[in-house]
């Protein structure tokens, strides 16, 4: 709460100095305010809020990187001459550690937009997420990769 107030104040001050109260300018001011309060977090903000914010930023950065990688990889597969040889499709059951609806939804969306994976279904008891894989090499390695990558990051954001 304290942090939100600080950032709003900083954004308003930025807009006032610029003489421009357009939404984009306010947003830009808020971004600069966030950056400065991160640098001065010891004196301004509660440490837990900042840690969570940093995790959200880290998840978003990882997501945008993986999104671009996945688009390039799909494009590469589409352009190969012998398309069936490049594929090894399958559906893998991924054991979920996440429990709430919003966590599972976020994880499923992230999985769909990352390289070679697409979430198909969630079991009735919400323990398993079924993931379609474009090029399946090692089932256990894939499950470990998701568990240690996105699932852990989602868990950290919501904890």
């Amino acid at each position: 709460m304290n942090l939100a107030l600080t950032i709003t104040g900083l954004a308003l001050a930025w807009a006032a100095i610029n003489g421009n109260f357009s939404p984009l300018n306010l947003l830009f001011g808020a971004a600069i305010g966030l950056l400065t309060s991160m640098l001065l977090r010891k004196w301004i903000a509660h440490p837990r809020v900042m840690r969570r914010l940093r995790r959200i930023v880290s998840l978003a950065l990882l997501f945008f990187w993986e999104l671009n990688v996945s688009a390039v990889r799909v494009a590469a597969i589409v352009m190969t001459p012998n398309i069936r040889a490049a594929l090894r499709p399958g559906i893998v059951a991924f054991p979920l550690k996440l429990t709430t609806d919003r966590e599972i939804t976020l994880l499923a969306n992230l999985i769909t937009l990352t390289p070679g994976t697409l979430s198909v279904d969630v079991s009735e008891d919400r323990r398993t997420l079924y993931v379609h894989v474009l090029n399946l090499k090692d089932r256990d390695a894939l499950v470990a990769e998701i568990a240690n990558g996105f699932e852990r990051k989602v868990q950290e954001v919501f904890e």
């Binding site: 090894r88 499709p89 399958g90 893998v92 059951a93 079924y130």
Partner: peptide, 11 residues
């Protein structure tokens, strides 16, 4: 053609 389909086995 799928190499494994663990969803079909479950439901």
């Amino acid at each position: 053609t799928m190499f494994i389909d663990e969803l079909a086995a479950a439901s």
